[in-house]
Every structure is written in structure tokens, then in C-alpha cells.
């Protein structure tokens, strides 16, 4: 297990180093997120819908689509001159490759969230108060689920001609339960309800994470066999 985690860390570090050098996906995702916030802001009628009612939907729609940019890039770097063959021919397990990719994607999505959530709070003048910590917990739990599913489908889609179209088509249906739970929990918190009322959604998110991480880790080796 220690070997798998060490190899996963090596792969994640390599992916993050590549992203740090190129910044292509990260900048795209951040710009996309901020533009999304602005567009929703100007399309919003504050007399019809309050900010705490609108913000959860805005937040999770933006995360879902900006995350796809990074997820597509995840195995895209491996397609360049068949780098994936070098990984697969090495002695590290397929599970370690998946976990490494997922970890890099999680850090990527977390970094996008770290910029977007404060921007959302400022734009929509949200009463964050004492709900910052639970909101961060929701963001992390939802990101784990999204990344697990997205990483698996990124691996499946990367070698197809319509990878950029196929990835969202495959991943979005599986994102629905995660986004639903995250959106509902966020709405409870932002509308000033007690944290305990969001705990059921948090537990559901945790359950989704456990199932998706385990299932996707086990399924990944089958996507690269032939």
C-alpha cells in the first residue's frame, strides 16, 4: 500500500509540475469560473431570487464545468507522444496511476475553488459568517467525488477522436448525485440553517466519495488494458 501511495504521489507531483509550467488548464478554468460568476451576476434579478438561493446553483454549475477543463487535460498530457506507454510499462500498479492522476486533479480543482469561492462571496455579498468551515468541507467532499469519476472517464475518452465532447457526455450523468448533494448542503448553509441540517447531505457526499473512489480505482485498470 505504501508503494502505491508513493507512486501515486510521484505521478501527481509530475502532473502538477507540468501544469505549473504550462498553466494552460488552470488559467482556463479560473477564467472560465470568474466569467461564469460575472455572467450569472448580470443575468440575476435580485428582486426575484435572493443571493443565498442563487449562489449554490451558480457555484456548483461553475465547478462542474471548470473541473472538466482540468480533467480533460489530465490524460491529455499522457497522450503527447504516447507518454502513457512509459507509465504503463513501468512497474507501478494501474491503481497507483489512477490515484496519482486523481490526486493531481483534486489539487487542481481545489485551487480553482480557492479562487472561485471567495469571488462568489464577494460578488453575491454572501453572509459567510460561521459557515466557512462546513462550506470548505462540502467543497472538498464534492471535489473528491467529481475528480474520481472525471479521472476515470478522462482516461476512457482521451484516445477517442471526440474526447472533448465524450468526457462531459460520460461524466456529467455521474456528477448529478454529487452536485445535487453539494448544492443542497450549500443552500442549507447559505440560507442560515443550522449546520446539522446539512449533515445528512454531507454524509451522502461522503458515501458517494467512498463508492466512486473505490469503484473508479478498481475500474481504471480495465480502461487501459488494450
Amino acid at each position: 500500500m505504501a508503494d502505491i501511495l508513493f507512486a501515486a504521489w510521484l505521478i501527481a507531483r509530475k502532473d502538477l509540475a507540468i501544469e505549473f509550467r504550462t498553466r494552460s488548464a488552470f488559467l482556463s478554468a479560473v477564467v472560465f469560473s470568474l466569467l461564469g460568476l460575472v455572467i450569472f451576476y448580470y443575468a440575476w434579478d435580485p428582486t426575484a431570487v435572493s443571493a443565498p438561493d442563487l449562489a449554490p446553483g451558480v457555484l456548483w454549475v461553475i465547478f462542474t464545468f471548470s473541473g472538466l477543463l482540468g480533467l480533460h487535460r489530465s490524460f491529455g498530457v499522457e497522450a503527447e507522444d504516447h507518454a502513457i506507454d512509459g507509465l504503463l510499462a513501468s512497474p507501478v500498479s494501474r491503481e497507483a496511476i489512477f490515484l496519482g492522476k486523481a490526486l493531481a486533479n483534486l489539487i487542481f480543482v481545489g485551487a480553482v475553488q480557492a479562487i472561485t469561492i471567495p469571488a462568489l462571496v464577494v460578488f453575491y455579498n454572501l453572509p459567510l459568517g460561521g459557515v466557512a468551515a462546513p462550506l470548505i468541507a462540502i467543497a472538498i467532499l464534492a471535489a473528491i467525488g467529481l475528480v474520481a469519476v472525471g479521472t476515470l472517464f478522462s482516461a476512457m475518452a482521451v484516445n477517442t477522436r471526440l474526447a472533448e465532447l465524450l468526457l462531459p457526455m460520460l461524466a456529467l450523468p455521474f456528477f448529478v448525485p454529487i452536485v445535487t448533494a453539494a448544492g443542497q448542503a450549500t443552500a442549507k448553509l447559505l440560507s442560515g440553517r443550522p449546520v446539522i441540517e446539512a449533515s445528512a447531505w454531507l454524509k451522502l457526499l461522503l458515501a458517494f466519495d467512498l463508492v466512486f473512489v473505490a469503484a473508479c480505482t478498481l475500474a481504471y485498470p480495465f480502461t487501459v488494458e488494450d
Binding site: 509530475k14 509540475a17 509550467r21 498530457v77 507522444d81 507518454a83 506507454d85
Partner: peptide, 12 residues
């Protein structure tokens, strides 16, 4: 394994 594909990461 050596291939006519370099299997390298261009950014590194």
C-alpha cells in the same frame, strides 16, 4: 521499452 514515440513529457 524504447519506441519511435519518445514517451516523454515535453514540459519537463
Amino acid at each position: 521499452l524504447i519506441s519511435h514515440h519518445t514517451m516523454l513529457y515535453e514540459a519537463l
